[in-house]
């Protein structure tokens, strides 16, 4: 199936966009905005608003119809395919398959000082009505906090015999998170630990697709809670266990 944006009629392809041009407000800027719309694939772009920002910048709002369409049958999306169970079901899964507690350790690593995301997943009280991992029977959850260097994180993972490593990254500007996340994978490989753990990351700008690309097992973005990551990790651990048995 092929689709186009929907404004007020099927397939009208209507989109809105806004941007700033580094030029004084005037007819030239207006024309530049329009041409930009055309080059972006808009038919009949209409500059509906133009305002001066300071002396040398101008701001535009443009409407137009895109010529492009998207063939949905050609798309591939990286999605976590394992189901999400509720807390009780996760606890039961653990009790049925393991005769020990599973160890989860988490941190906001590198220079990142944001803790609310990792706390939402791990702390007892959880977030938005979803309890955190600390409250799960069968899970020992260690939240190391923020600004934890990768070396320290790995040292703790070893010491605690962690089964699951949870990384939270919030600051993504200039791709600081990528460097930090890749470094962790490299360090884990150097320590021959990568295959012994489930490695999961999360954060507002983290997608599953990005996580896979960087060598993580999964990535969780906004709207994901403890039960999502717990379900994924426990199912992965069970799968791994069965594989080694065979």
């Amino acid at each position: 199936m092929k689709i186009k944006p929907y404004g007020d009629t099927s397939n009208d392809g209507k989109v809105q966009l806004s941007f700033t041009l580094p030029i004084k407000i005037g007819a030239l800027g207006m024309e530049a905005a329009k041409q930009l719309g055309k080059q972006m694939g808009l038919i009949d772009p209409s500059v509906v608003s133009m305002e001066a920002i300071g002396e040398n910048f101008s701001f535009y709002i443009v409407y137009g119809s895109v010529t492009h369409q998207i063939d949905l049958s050609l798309l591939k999306v990286a999605e976590i395919t394992t189901p999400t169970f509720d807390k009780e079901a996760v606890e039961k899964l653990i009790a049925d398959h393991f005769d020990r507690d599973l160890v989860f350790i988490g941190a906001s690593t590198g220079t990142d000082a944001h803790t609310v995301g990792i706390d939402a997943i791990m702390n007892m009280k959880g977030y938005a009505g979803h309890y955190g991992l600390e409250r799960y029977a069968g899970i020992k959850a260690y939240n190391l906090g923020s600004q934890v260097p990768n070396e320290v994180f790995i040292r703790e993972a070893k010491r605690l015999h962690a089964d699951v490593l949870l990384i939270s990254q919030t600051v993504t500007q200039k791709d600081v998170h990528l460097k930090n996340m890749v470094e962790l994978v490299e360090l884990l490989e150097a320590e021959h630990m990568r295959n012994d753990v489930i490695l999961v990351c999360g954060g507002a700008r983290i997608s599953h697709e990005l996580a896979k690309e960087l060598g993580y097992d999964a990535g969780f973005g906004p709207g994901k809670f403890a039960e999502d990551v717990a379900s994924f990790a426990v199912l992965e651990l069970i799968r791994k266990k069965n594989k080694t048995k065979k």
């Binding site: 806004s18 941007f19 700033t20 305002e51 920002i53 910048f57 701001f59 500007q173 507002a204």
Partner: peptide
Amino acid sequence: EAIHTPFLSDRYL
């Protein structure tokens, strides 16, 4: 706010 440090136009608006 939830996306990036402000663009010139974010601040203006």
